[in-house]
Design a binder for these strands. Structure first.
Lengths: 345, 345
DNA sequence: GACATTTCCGTCATCGGTTCCGGAACTTTT
DNA sequence: AAAAGTTCCGGAACCGATGACGGAAATGTC
């Protein structure tokens, strides 16, 4: 009766299966892992019992033995924003293809939380980690590298040492494309509402923006570049400043879609129509971009693809394979919608 | 030198610490877990070495001993849609408060994947699971319950057996409120674009919709109720049918924000202005709701709060505490924005 | 038919911890 | 000063699996 109640309430172990099949645990383990040198009828009997009892191996115990948990830490500032959840979707999808799972850990943009979480993950919780928009300094990440823990950075916040594996988007060429698009429409006074100044994404996009202007013989005007965070409200103040100028721009390149949305709202409040009186472009091609009115002309970032790529990179690292390029940059693409038009007269 | 290279490259174990401190592993374990009966200076010496080597306990090994992994399975159809990522955010936030982590597992709406993932989680991977919008039948969930595995359902797709722990939103009262809002504006012909017919959310919202109509002395007209999925394009066909009627409705209650957005798009394509010619309301108060034009009048679902509540419920279940109510319903709230107005004359 | 192989399976150490038990040293009680 | 109780710490079993190793039986070889 102890037998019955135990088999009913508690999870059965490899020992229970072995006992019921009158074999040793080693034999059950062999069957479980498809090893050979097991008599067909023995294999069949064990398989049947395993099936009947609904047994499946305790991954924790196995990982103690072979040192692998099948778990990958996924550190992300926040889960909710579209930007991050798209990356997360790509990551989990790719992980699943290899029977791996993600331990999702939002850091809430807190440096401390990121450090302690990474520390936890290193110590037997996860075989490696994916760090999205890391809060940590280059030095800290290098130390992590030296400790031999496997990780890949997705969308580095700051420029990274060449030894640190990272996946990012082609910010410069995307910014170049979208700026050229505005130039081709005939715009000459093109302002920019940028992200935070030290961020890699900001600097690369500025580079593309400047390059496109230069190719049209236009010298970047510092007065037309205003720094903001990457949130919707951040655009408001910046847009005010730009629109109140004596010589306001005819187009604004907001460095992400949030800022573009904020810019459109601000322009509307200012009494301007988009795109008739003012063209606005964004960057990201987030879910919102196609839903708002006017639908946003923007640059598509392959966020899910970045997640998948990072997973593959990490897997190779974990398997100890030689990796040719540690820095992968995925292409971006201009998406023209309704928020851009030629300047008035 | 073996010593040095090992301490540098490999993770140190409790044995390494014990050796360096000239004590047994038992003593180190006591220090690590804050047990007493350790001499102050011994404790100090061990703590120092632990700190110096950056040692932290291997959770996997510990979980083998005490049967707890500190991991919670989080099964969600998809990660990306705003609806789910908001729930995920609430869940991870609450888990973090209790030093728990989520194993994020998107099922991609596939019944099989959900079943096998749950099975995996049960077997030593996770201490419990949170299942969002489960694909599984009542019978399957009851079987899971009988196996003594701890789980909580968030936003049940189908009506659930009373024994199955679940957290949901007050769909009926929310639908009642938003319908009353339309009635108060003077609308009498109020159509509904519903979700799939057997879903609990759909049926509950219908109930609230009918109740509000009834309280205004209006008999629900089956011709004004059209079934759709919960996606944006799904609203298109439904809206067409409604608007092409000889006696079109003056207001449409879309059963979620996606459908409301699709309805607004369809109305616009049909040449109607929202809200002047047609009022549209949604349900969810997703991130999009406030961004689109016109900003959507909708019903706020406390999604993050649902996630947090589910975590607390699950924790009590895991700890073996008595739980008074297994079914928790969280309140919803009407959010009036710009997509509703009195009917024309 | 003796010997070498192969097949099948069990014993046991191991992974990194936790905890029970008991021993030694030291302190308190009577 | 003997008995009793504390405090501190080590030995060893244990959690659930894996895999090296070796033994016994079956099969193959000449």
């Amino acid at each position: 009766m102890t037998e019955v109640s135990k088999s009913f309430r508690e999870r059965s172990t490899i020992h229970d299966i072995a006992a019921e099949a009158n074999v040793s645990v080693a034999t059950v383990s062999r069957v479980l892992n498809g090893r050979d040198h097991v008599a067909p009828e023995t294999r069949e009997r064990i398989s049947r019992i395993v099936r009947e009892r609904g047994y499946s191996v305790n991954r924790g115990a196995r990982s103690l033995q072979d040192g692998r948990t099948g778990l990958i830490g996924l550190l992300v500032p926040l889960v909710h924003p579209n930007y991050f959840s798209t990356i997360v979707a790509g990551v989990t999808e790719a992980l699943n293809d290899h029977d791996l799972r993600a331990i999702l850990s939002p850091t809430e943009h807190k440096h401390d939380r990121e450090v302690t979480l990474l520390d936890r993950l290193m110590h037997g919780m996860a075989d490696g980690a994916l760090v999205v928009l890391p809060e940590e300094s280059n030095a800290e990440l290098e130390r992590l590298l030296d400790s031999d823990y496997n990780f890949v950075v997705i969308d580095p916040r700051l420029p990274l040492d060449a030894r640190i594996p990272a996946v990012s988007a082609a910010n410069t060429s995307g910014a170049d494309q979208v700026t050229r698009h505005l130039l081709e429409l005939g715009h000459r006074r093109i302002a920019a509402i940028t992200g935070p100044r030290d961020w890699q994404a900001t600097e690369e996009r500025r580079r593309g923006y400047h390059a496109a202007l230069a190719s049209a013989g236009i010298l970047p005007d510092p007065a037309l570049e205003i720094e903001a965070d990457f949130e919707i409200p951040g655009a408001d103040r910046a847009a005010q400043v730009l629109l109140n100028r004596p010589d306001p721009p005819t187009a604004i390149f907001a460095f992400n879609d949030n800022l573009a949305i904020g810019t459109i709202q601000a322009a509307r409040a200012y009494g301007l129509r988009v795109p008739e009186d003012l063209s606005v472009v964004g960057f990201d091609d987030s879910e919102h971009a196609s839903l708002i009115t006017p639908a946003l002309t923007t640059v598509r970032q392959p966020l899910a693809e970045m997640g998948r790529t990072a997973v593959n990179l990490l897997r190779r690292l974990i398997d100890g394979q030689r990796v040719e390029t540690l820095h992968v940059e995925l292409g971006t693409r201009l998406v023209v919608r309704d928020s851009t038009a030629p300047p008035r007269s």
